[in-house]
């Protein structure tokens, strides 16, 4: 059985509120953003003056002015996860990384983070954008218990604001930057035992969410929102049917796309607000880092015996789930 021994996060400190977006005068206002997507602030590695003056019309300029790269954020999140797990970087035997905004494509993001951590280990990218938390756990389960090194480091990192067209009234409100990391072991017990995981995709709908390599994020917003709610509800229902989930004790974490969507899901499954962990309200959608970051930010609140139910969806279209038990 796999366990998660420690988790960490890293987010930029620059925050954009809804009034800033309203002041860009692109046809939106603070009230509309709050009502539609429930996000009040989002964090970015871009300087606010750069956004204000250029609206990021050439995303290739974003990396020139950004305060951090995906590698920077991923490395700091990894260091935090290692500290929590109580191990050294040199104890890690393998690194897998998910990044949907890489600044180089060869070598992969995992190789760059390994280099920053100063370790020579097997390092490669395992990638599906937003459902990365479920994919990575499900991917590692394919190895069985004997074919993995003692400690595996997983990272999901993205600077999606570098791909935002701030002249678009919706996209600027959605995205934030951030990274999350988690240490997995098949040989050492950890705070979170992995009971189950799933991952799959429907590539016939892969054009619904796109990030052009040198250009912008774009999506079929309504279709993606409907898919996200329906698919997340299906994932949670399936878990409820297989495990003794008690929403007065157990915790739900969904893809941090927007709070309104998450509330539709929790209302459907009658999950009380106290048992729904999220961070999208003040960080924005951090792609594959959002859900694991939510869990990491609540690490010290985990209670023995609790089930943690993660259901994540995203580009591909792809989706997956994890059921964990706090030991």
């Amino acid at each position: 059985m796999l366990s998660i021994l420690g988790m960490g996060t890293c987010h930029p400190t620059t925050s954009i509120d809804n009034h800033f977006l309203e002041a860009l005068d692109v046809g939106t206002n603070a009230q509309w953003i709050e009502e539609k997507i429930g996000i009040l602030e989002r964090v970015t590695t871009l300087p606010v003056d750069y956004i204000k003056t250029t609206r990021n019309q050439d995303p290739r300029m974003a990396r020139e002015v950004a305060s951090a790269t995906p590698t920077d954020l991923g490395t700091k999140a990894a260091e935090s996860a290692l500290k929590r797990a109580g191990i050294k970087a040199t104890d890690i035997g393998m690194i897998i990384v998910n990044c949907c905004s890489p600044q180089q494509t060869v070598p992969g993001e995992a190789v760059r983070i390994a280099e920053r951590l100063g370790i020579n280990v097997e390092a490669y990218d395992v990638y599906t954008a937003c459902p990365a938390f479920a994919l990575h756990i499900d991917f590692l389960r394919n190895f069985g218990t004997v074919n993995l090194p003692e400690f595996v480091l997983c990272v999901s990192t993205a600077t999606m604001t570098h791909h935002v067209n701030y002249n678009d009234r919706s996209d600027g409100a959605i995205w934030g930057d951030g990274a999350a990391a988690w240490v997995v072991s098949s040989r050492n017990p950890g705070k979170l035992e992995i009971l189950d995981s799933t991952y799959t995709a429907d590539p016939t709908r892969c054009a619904a969410v796109v990030v052009d390599s040198y250009r912008f994020f774009h999506q079929d917003g309504r279709a993606v929102r409907d898919f996200s709610v329906r698919q997340t509800v299906r994932l949670v229902k399936a878990i409820e049917e297989s495990y003794p989930i008690d929403w007065s004790r157990d915790i739900f974490i969904g893809h941090q796309a927007n709070r309104t969507m998450l509330e539709q899901i929790t209302n459907n499954r009658e999950i009380p607000p106290s048992n729904h962990w999220h961070n999208v309200t003040y960080l924005g959608n951090q792609a594959g880092a959002g859900a694991p970051a939510s869990l990491s930010m609540n690490w010290d609140s985990l209670q023995a015996g609790q089930h943690i139910v993660v259901a994540v969806v995203g580009a591909g279209l792809s989706w997956g789930s994890i059921v964990m038990r706090v030991s």
């Binding site: 395992v126 990638y127 590539p203």
Partner: peptide, 15 residues
Amino acid sequence: GEFGVKSAAFDLVGG
């Protein structure tokens, strides 16, 4: 997506 089938797919990027 070009083949129009639903099945698990993700990238395993090895440089």
